[in-house]
Amino acid sequence: MEERTVAYLRGAFKRHYEATEVSPPPAPNEREWGYIPWTAQAQTTMVRHRSWLDVGNLGRFLTEERPQHVYFSAAQYRDPSANSMSRKDWQGTDLVFDLDADHLPGVDPEETTYREMLATCKDALLDLLDVLEDDFGFEDTTVVFSGGRGYHVHVRDDGVHELGRGDRREIVEYVLAEGLDLDALLARELVDGIGLENPTEKRTLSTTGGWGKRVHDRLLALVDEVRAMDDHEDKLERLQAYDGIGEGSAEKLVDVFDANYDQIAQGNVEVHGRFLTLARQVAAETFDAESAPIDEPVTTDINRLIRLPGSLHGGTGLMVERIPRDAVADFEPLEDAISPVFGDESDGALAIEVTEPVTVELGDDTFTLEAGAATVPEYVGVFAMARGHAEIAKQ
């Protein structure tokens, strides 16, 4: 990146910070602070082990330093400015989750557009929030668009700060549905059989919460789907899509769905042997579709630094945006995270030199930039320069 481009971006970031009130996290004086300054070199070094006293007034610090990236520690310490973790005297850590769009299963950064990647990532975010809120009962959650490839969730409920790496790893395993199968979810009870000397075992899925309910919901939805089909051959074809379900088994299952619907709705999976075969595969589908592919090291690392909401992401120029919980579903990162100070198409344009062809998806438009001189809205130019695809035009 040319020095003139660095100077322009630093100036643009300053304008953002002058116009934006950035709120610190809870207990900012107990957290380590770090930042990466703007430089023309590709390799940059983080300035870290700073305390709140070093930062001073946050607004003034951001306006004067105009950093490329800004971070604070998820952990709280007695001495956050100590230059070794052992001397900081750890007091606890927020429970933090990170979702990166280009690390999601089925996402190929070479084939998937930025907008599509972020849409897929938001789906994963909603799955994550469903698990955190419904299964763990967390209420004090802060959702943040990272300004780059995904989302962060900060959990600060009572009791989470003291969790060690092992406890956090168990939470990760649950969120990822690691090691889960249908048998692990089944509740077992002995049921007296009429006319039988020994009681029989009944296995059921939970219909009230957790992974058991998710599997049961998906299984019951399949049963309802098949029962609602008018054509009998369509019912058989739908069921034969599952391994181990041939035509005869499918015929039997169609009858089982009708004859045992109430039992199935109550979570009973013992209605037929082939139904259990089907349930195992639906369980695997559920784990794959509804687990949240979080970045494990972020959650288990009790000393992790995380991006400051309200700051700008130096690799995109987009805001690290805190999202109200009830606004997550409607949040559009490539529109809502554009800093207002960078304007829109009606506010004039910026002259840049595109160094390599690039497609920029921002706002409700797609900009195809060929190598050479171009005039674009400032927010597009800031994005292209921050990504390393362009330089500010020479005056």
Rank of each mutant, 00 (worst) to 15 (best):
42 A>T: 15
42 A>L: 13
43 Q>T: 13
44 T>Q: 14
44 T>R: 15
46 M>E: 15
46 M>T: 14
48 R>M: 09
50 R>M: 12
51 S>I: 11
53 L>T: 12
53 L>V: 06
53 L>W: 11
59 G>V: 04
61 F>Y: 15
61 F>Q: 04
61 F>V: 07
61 F>L: 13
62 L>H: 09
63 T>A: 14
66 R>I: 07
67 P>E: 03
68 Q>I: 00
69 H>S: 06
69 H>M: 06
70 V>N: 00
70 V>M: 12
70 V>K: 01
70 V>W: 01
70 V>I: 11
71 Y>R: 07
72 F>G: 00
72 F>K: 03
72 F>P: 02
73 S>V: 02
74 A>V: 05
75 A>Y: 01
75 A>H: 01
76 Q>S: 12
76 Q>D: 07
77 Y>V: 03
77 Y>M: 06
78 R>Y: 10
78 R>S: 11
78 R>D: 14
78 R>K: 12
78 R>F: 07
79 D>V: 13
79 D>K: 13
80 P>K: 12
81 S>T: 12
82 A>G: 08
82 A>N: 15
84 S>H: 13
84 S>P: 07
86 S>L: 15
86 S>F: 10
86 S>E: 15
90 W>I: 05
90 W>V: 04
91 Q>L: 14
92 G>V: 03
92 G>C: 07
93 T>P: 04
93 T>I: 05
94 D>Q: 08
95 L>D: 02
97 F>Y: 05
97 F>D: 00
97 F>I: 02
98 D>M: 06
98 D>H: 04
99 L>C: 02
99 L>V: 07
101 A>K: 03
101 A>R: 04
102 D>N: 14
103 H>V: 02
103 H>G: 00
103 H>N: 06
104 L>W: 06
107 V>A: 03
107 V>N: 04
107 V>Y: 07
108 D>Y: 08
109 P>E: 06
109 P>M: 10
109 P>I: 06
109 P>F: 07
109 P>S: 02
111 E>V: 08
111 E>C: 05
113 T>Y: 08
113 T>V: 04
113 T>W: 05
114 Y>I: 04
114 Y>C: 00
114 Y>T: 08
115 R>A: 13
115 R>P: 00
116 E>P: 09
117 M>G: 14
118 L>I: 15
118 L>M: 12
118 L>N: 04
121 C>S: 09
121 C>K: 03
121 C>A: 14
122 K>Q: 13
123 D>H: 13
124 A>Q: 09
125 L>W: 05
125 L>I: 11
125 L>N: 02
125 L>Y: 03
126 L>V: 12
127 D>H: 14
128 L>M: 07
130 D>T: 10
131 V>E: 02
131 V>M: 11
131 V>Y: 04
131 V>T: 09
132 L>F: 09
132 L>P: 04
133 E>K: 08
133 E>Y: 06
133 E>A: 01
134 D>G: 10
135 D>S: 08
135 D>N: 07
136 F>I: 03
136 F>H: 05
136 F>S: 03
137 G>F: 13
138 F>W: 09
139 E>C: 06
139 E>M: 12
141 T>V: 13
143 V>T: 06
143 V>C: 01
143 V>Q: 01
144 V>H: 01
144 V>L: 00
144 V>Y: 00
145 F>D: 00
146 S>W: 00
146 S>K: 02
146 S>H: 01
147 G>V: 01
147 G>T: 05
148 G>H: 05
